[in-house]
Design a protein around this nucleic acid. Sequence first.
DNA 1: CCCTGCAGGTTGTATATACAGGCTAGTTGA
DNA 2: TCAACTAGCCTGTATATACAACCTGCAGGG
Lengths: 253, 253
Amino acid sequence: MPAKPRYRQLKELIIDRISTGELKPSDRVPSEMDLVDSTGVSRMTANRALRELTNEGYVKRVAGVGTFVADVTAASHVLEVRDIAAEIEGRGHRHSALVMQCCETAASDEVAAALECDVGARVPNVMLVHAENGVPIQLEDRFIRPTFAPAFLQQDFSAVTPSAYLSAIAPLQEAEHKVRAQMPEPDVRERLRMRKREPCLVVLRRTWAHGEPVTFTRLVHPGDRYELAGHYIPPGTETSTDSDVTVLRKFNL
Amino acid sequence: MPAKPRYRQLKELIIDRISTGELKPSDRVPSEMDLVDSTGVSRMTANRALRELTNEGYVKRVAGVGTFVADVTAASHVLEVRDIAAEIEGRGHRHSALVMQCCETAASDEVAAALECDVGARVPNVMLVHAENGVPIQLEDRFIRPTFAPAFLQQDFSAVTPSAYLSAIAPLQEAEHKVRAQMPEPDVRERLRMRKREPCLVVLRRTWAHGEPVTFTRLVHPGDRYELAGHYIPPGTETSTDSDVTVLRKFNL
DNA sequence: CCCTGCAGGTTGTATATACAGGCTAGTTGA
DNA sequence: TCAACTAGCCTGTATATACAACCTGCAGGG
């Protein structure tokens, strides 16, 4: 069996140290020569690893200075799924969350299909309403794979969002989104303090880790108080080398 | 003044040959050794250019065989904005478009801001309804920058979509999307044959070419007959080397 | 006729080396 | 004291070379 190429091993080494928190944003990452000395690769191999990590948004490099872990803003285009609490606080506003439900439920057809488990299986479920400066802006209805995160339901989700808790356990590897426009159910409408006849944006999100589906989440937003914004700059254009540009900010949820 | 690095010159050389149509999907791209012989760079430089073009979705490489221009499916994650006619025909269905309006209009505040022109300026505008097997699925209301594409209004948009026509004129360089849920205006509701109280997804899209905004488009979809789907695999994961996977299929509009 | 094996072209990776250019800190000199 | 310079570290790019792995097509043997 073929071993992974060394530049890839180097990348994973550094990604691990970032995702475990050993390296925090703006921390210094070992320089190319450090990696040469510590791992025995050639400088070009270390260069390729760090260069690809730059393109992927994990780190930032400054010629003549060094390589540093990218901050949250830049990391968003790696993770793509930003934590709503961080998003709100990044706007300088106050985030609060009201937990409406936090228990095991029997998997519906939709949930079972999404998480690839049996219909009726007991699935941890948490439902909460996120608010920005006290104004509700999102209902989060999240199901997680039973075997994943055993202590999930014991968390205090008014303090740490489910997204933040889960991403601390395992790094997100894949995400799938579906977006629809729908009329909200009456109870949802009330929770989000929506006007009558106001439609809502519904985002269905599945995430994977280690090749297995981990979470299935329904996110409901008031239609006229929130919008999804995405800005895309194809690679290969002049501006794409400017690593200060957020290449892709997709769903700011 | 510093010249562009040679690997970047090579990339642009090849991107140009693709975007002008000189190289078509599945055509063979010069091999690394070809580039070495024709341009005098070293093989590693040619390798870097072709490798980055692979990551960016322009070409596909097969070890032992060669490098080829990526086909439309893979190109979608470069262009990101797929042509709806191609999308529908890709499903094996029949696309048709009904042109409702095709004239110059005075720029509203919103249009003027989007296209960075004066309010009241005469702006080409086309509005049409796209249908899949006769069922209307999208209303397209498009404004284009006056100086861009002078012959725009003379086109027969029931035969060639505005998107296809414009992308033939200039390659898309940037795109910005905003997505909302809204109730449709009565005339739109009728054109899309929507039920009463059915909400719609509204996508506002701006595109740029050569650093200037080129088009501003409002796309309206019936809420329950259409959804936006996106699947994202962060780079650096195991699967990201498999170039058969569409790394990012964002708005299938 | 078919199957095998091999040659040659192509990509993928790794290394050693070289030079240019940016940034920092410390030293030197006015 | 302050300014200018410089040594040293770091990234960015470019080249030459090497070997492994992969695929195709062709030649030769069964």
